[in-house]
Simulated assay, not measured.
Amino acid sequence: MAETLPHLLTVQAVERPHHVAIRHKQLGLWQQTSWLAVQEDVTKAAQYLQQQGFRQGDTLFLLSEPRPEALLLALAAHWLGGVAAPLDPAFAQPQLLDLLHTLRPQFVFAEAQAQVDQVLAAKPDSAVVIYADARGLAGYQHPALVSYAQVVATAEIQAIAPAVTADEIAFRFYRLSTNYALEYSEVSHAELLRNGRQLVTQEALTAHEEALAARAFAASGHAKYLLSPWLLAGFTLNFPENLATRDTDRRELGPTLVAGTATTYQRLYALTQSRWPLPGSWQHRVVAWALRAAKTRLPLIAAFARWLVILPLQDVLGLRRTRVPLLVGEPLSPEATQFFADIGIHVRAWPEATAWQTSQLQVIPHESHEAHAFWGFSKWKAAI
């Protein structure tokens, strides 16, 4: 039985080669990638990393919002027996630069110009910096820079067997503690698959699910309850065009599986409340009646209330088809929990038990955040 993420990918590529593994919205259009094509791109990326000196035990750092390239490069690092280390793009700029300056990454995926600038400011001698979005980078002359499109453009695919075992670390997560110490947590392939299988079994997940990856894989819960089940069940993983369009893309897509944090659901709750009818208005009384009536045992009244208010609310949130709404990590507020239950969205909490350890590395503050502008806009960019 396959007990690592790369081995599971090979299984899916054999069992359902032409089924849609990934769907990504680009310039308003959904682009589809089959399981076989995913495996080929991961193999090409692994081949490129290997040629650049990436070896078993090395770490590929990921600085990106949710997008397929980050996921496939993480699997490529796993393929070679390496570790993927997602850095939360929500980190404040000074903290992120201090993290990068301390970790000194050699192999990095930096999504776009802003992330490339952050990496080069903190570690200008990185060996490989792969980017996905080329806008603004045309004049950059740094020898480590390479586009993801170039990485997977090779026509030949070398047969590289996955060099990874179940007990090896798949992901390592970093954060800064309240006293500004560097902390990390690790999750192995075996742990990921154990948690993933538990979810697949309990929620009866199948290859027919449509899941939305609306957050970066910067927390262990998303790796355990979204990435691992995706490879185990073989369903389609969808990526929004960007964070600004994720709500629109969710409504358009209608995912059956949503794995979100408390922040995700609280944001949706706040979005709904901002459009809620004013207390005392006839619209507010209608909504309140419908929420009560939807729970009645009278079928016609319940159906009318559901048609009048409940279904439109689910449509606004893009949750009408969602049958598996997962909450990863910290709990929701009681008000938000009650609201989602009232509109028929029964959010299930899955714990994110993370054991954080203090690193022996001492945090090295980036000497001058102002120097970032000079460094990024002079040495690595063509004169304008």
Rank of each mutant, 00 (worst) to 15 (best):
G318C: 05
S274P: 15
R320V: 07
W289G: 02
L291Q: 00
L278K: 11
S274M: 14
P277G: 09
W282T: 09
R275P: 03
V287N: 02
L298M: 11
A294E: 04
A293C: 00
R275L: 10
W289H: 05
L326Y: 04
L300I: 13
Q283L: 10
D315F: 09
L319Y: 03
L319G: 04
V324Q: 05
L327N: 06
I301N: 05
I301D: 06
A302G: 14
V328Q: 07
P277K: 08
L326Q: 00
R323P: 03
R275H: 12
R297H: 15
G280W: 05
R323L: 01
A305L: 02
P299V: 03
P312F: 01
D315L: 15
A303R: 14
L278I: 13
P325W: 10
R275C: 10
V328H: 05
V324M: 07
R321L: 10
Q314G: 01
A293F: 04
G318F: 02
P325F: 12
V328K: 01
I310Y: 03
Q283T: 07
A302F: 08
L298A: 12
L311H: 05
R323V: 13
R285F: 09
P312S: 02
L298V: 14
L308D: 03
L300D: 15
H284K: 09
V328Y: 01
L298G: 10
P299Q: 06
I301L: 12
P312D: 02
A294F: 00
I301M: 09
V316D: 13
V328A: 07
A294R: 11
A288C: 13
I310C: 06
R321S: 02
P312H: 01
P279E: 15
R297Q: 14
